[in-house]
Amino acid sequence: MELKQLEYMIQIAEDNNITRAAEKLFITQSALNQQLLKLENELGTQLFVRSRNNWHLTQAGAIYVENAKRILLIKKETYNKINDLLEIKEGTLKIGLTPERGTDMFAAIYPGFYNKYPKVRIEPLEMTVKEQQHAISQGNLDIGFVTLQPAQKTKDAYIPICSEEIILCVPRTHPLSHLGGRLGEPLPEISLTHFAEDSFAVMRKGSTLREIYDDLLAEDDISPPILLETRSCQTLFEMVAEGICCSVLPISYASSRSNVSFFSLPQHPVWEIAASYKKDSYLTQAAKELIALCTEYWERKMSELR
């Protein structure tokens, strides 16, 4: 059994198309097809049901690909453990970053990581939390840096980094803004029911923050009008700062240098910032260092808001 052959079959299965798989593997389609036919002849059965635009695994193919991933993971972990034992600081880390905040964090911590592990190549991938969780479960991601609630956790491993409060932000022009507070001070508490008729800027459906927002509305039995849906928490805050609408967002996106009043909510919603990886898989020293740097980053970030 050749390890390259395992990689080939996995790529075809992931793309459901031999042409796209060949392009990603940097080999010709005919060469990849020959490898597939050779393997199928060896096994005595087809691994894929062929169609023009959509290949899919047969029952035998599903068994083969599932175990091919396990074999490659064992190989990877074996090399990682030996490299750590011999203090060989080389390799590759595929990490998942949430849009916006994840990339900002990575830009801040990477210089420190590079100083310690200059020969470890990092492949940062901007992905939603659910996309990261799927990639981790498939063995396609070494670490995911995610923000989520406990109910959203999968069976994979999670290392808590910190928790972050979700707060209400309203323009200073709002009639109730005088009741609000400023960052760095204990925030006054107020119910969203007082803002049931106000327009809100919210995250798009499918995001962790949108799930938190929808749960808050359901608990208060209200449905404020939605002015804007976006993928950017920074955009949410800017909309409030411009006096256009209200919003519920993580406290780290708030700025004291703005025309915004801040409130705590009675439910005291928070989300957890965590590092996630496949359960029972081996975390290299380089991976642990990256997580440590991420933890330091968020500890500084949160202390600045207190």
Rank of each mutant, 00 (worst) to 15 (best):
V65G: 05
R204C: 01
R257L: 06
H178D: 13
I167G: 04
Y117S: 09
K130C: 07
Q152C: 05
M203R: 06
T128C: 07
D142E: 13
V49R: 14
G61A: 10
P150H: 14
Y297A: 13
M203F: 08
I12A: 07
M203D: 05
E289N: 12
E229P: 04
I143E: 03
A21T: 07
Y8D: 11
S177P: 04
K69G: 06
L6P: 00
L176S: 00
I74D: 03
I63P: 00
T92Q: 14
R172P: 04
I12R: 04
T154Y: 00
I251G: 03
Y79F: 10
C245S: 09
K119E: 15
Q5G: 07
G180H: 03
A157W: 05
P250I: 02
S252Q: 01
I71C: 14
F113H: 10
N140G: 07
E289A: 14
K81Y: 11
Q138T: 12
L85E: 12
E299V: 05
G139Y: 08
D221T: 13
L3T: 15
H134P: 00
Y213F: 15
M127P: 01
A218Q: 12
G96W: 05
I18F: 04
N17P: 01
A287G: 10
Q149I: 09
C162F: 07
V49I: 15
L305M: 14
K301T: 11
N140A: 11
Y79Q: 12
K94H: 08
P225G: 09
Q285L: 09
Q5I: 09
T98R: 04
I136E: 00
T128H: 10
A196N: 04
L283Q: 11
N140C: 05
V65S: 06
D215C: 10
S256A: 03
L125D: 09
L97V: 12
F237G: 00
Q5W: 05
E131L: 11
K81T: 09
T284F: 00
Q267T: 04
P171M: 08
K130D: 14
P188L: 07
I166P: 00
S264Y: 03
E87D: 15
I71W: 15
V170H: 00
Q152D: 10
E66N: 14
A275V: 04
I136R: 06
N16Y: 10
Q29R: 15
T78W: 05
V202Y: 03
K4C: 12
E229F: 07
E296H: 11
T147I: 07
D142Y: 05
P99G: 08
S191G: 12
L217F: 10
I74N: 08
E40Q: 13
F263E: 01
I63V: 13
Y213W: 10
Q234G: 15
I82Q: 12
